[in-house]
Simulated assay, not measured.
Amino acid sequence: MPVQSHIASEQPGSGLLGAGDIRRLAMEAGITPTKKLGQNFVIDPGTVRRIVHEAGIHAGESVLEVGPGLGSLTLGLLESGADVHAIEIDAALARKLASTVREFMPEAAERLSVLNMDALQVQARDIPDFEDGRPFSLVANLPYNVATPVILTLLARFPALNSLLVMVQKEVADRLVAQPGTKIYGVPSVKLAWYGNAQRAGSVGRNVFWPAPNVDSALVRFQRTQGNHQPDDTRAVFAIIDAAFRQRRKTLHAALRGLVHDSAYQICGIDPKRRGETLSIDEFESLSLAESGRPFQEQHNLEASGSGYDAKLS
Rank of each mutant, 00 (worst) to 15 (best):
M1V: 04
P2T: 10
Q11G: 00
G18R: 06
D21G: 08
I22C: 15
A26Y: 01
A29W: 06
T32F: 09
T34A: 15
K35G: 06
K36L: 15
L37Q: 14
G38S: 10
N40R: 03
F41N: 05
G46L: 13
V48C: 14
V52F: 12
V52C: 05
G56S: 08
A59V: 00
V66Q: 06
G67P: 09
P68N: 11
S72L: 07
T74A: 04
L78C: 08
L78R: 06
E79G: 05
S80M: 07
D83F: 07
V84I: 05
I89E: 03
R95Y: 01
T100G: 08
V101F: 11
V101I: 06
V101G: 07
E103W: 00
P106C: 14
L115F: 11
D118F: 12
A119I: 02
A119L: 04
L120D: 04
V122W: 02
Q123L: 03
R125Q: 14
I127Y: 07
F130D: 03
E131T: 15
E131M: 15
G133P: 00
G133L: 08
R134T: 13
F136G: 08
S137C: 10
L138P: 05
A140H: 01
A140P: 04
A140L: 09
L142H: 07
L142A: 10
P143V: 02
Y144P: 13
Y144A: 13
A147D: 08
L154C: 04
L155S: 11
S163P: 00
K170W: 14
A173L: 10
A173Y: 12
A178H: 05
A178F: 12
P180S: 11
G181C: 07
Y185W: 10
V187C: 09
K191I: 13
R200G: 15
S203E: 13
V208F: 10
F209N: 05
P211N: 11
P211V: 05
V215M: 05
V215H: 03
D216I: 00
V220Q: 02
F222P: 02
T225L: 12
Q226V: 01
G227Y: 01
H229R: 10
D233M: 09
D233G: 00
F238L: 02
A239W: 03
A239V: 00
A239E: 15
I240W: 01
I241D: 04
D242A: 13
R249C: 11
T251D: 11
L252P: 07
R257W: 00
G258D: 11
G258F: 09
L259C: 00
V260L: 07
I267M: 09
G269T: 01
G269S: 05
I270F: 10
I270E: 11
R274T: 02
G276M: 06
T278Q: 14
I281P: 01
D282C: 08
L289T: 03
S292L: 14
F296P: 00
Q299F: 02
H300S: 10
G308T: 02
D310T: 07
K312N: 05
S314V: 00
S314M: 11
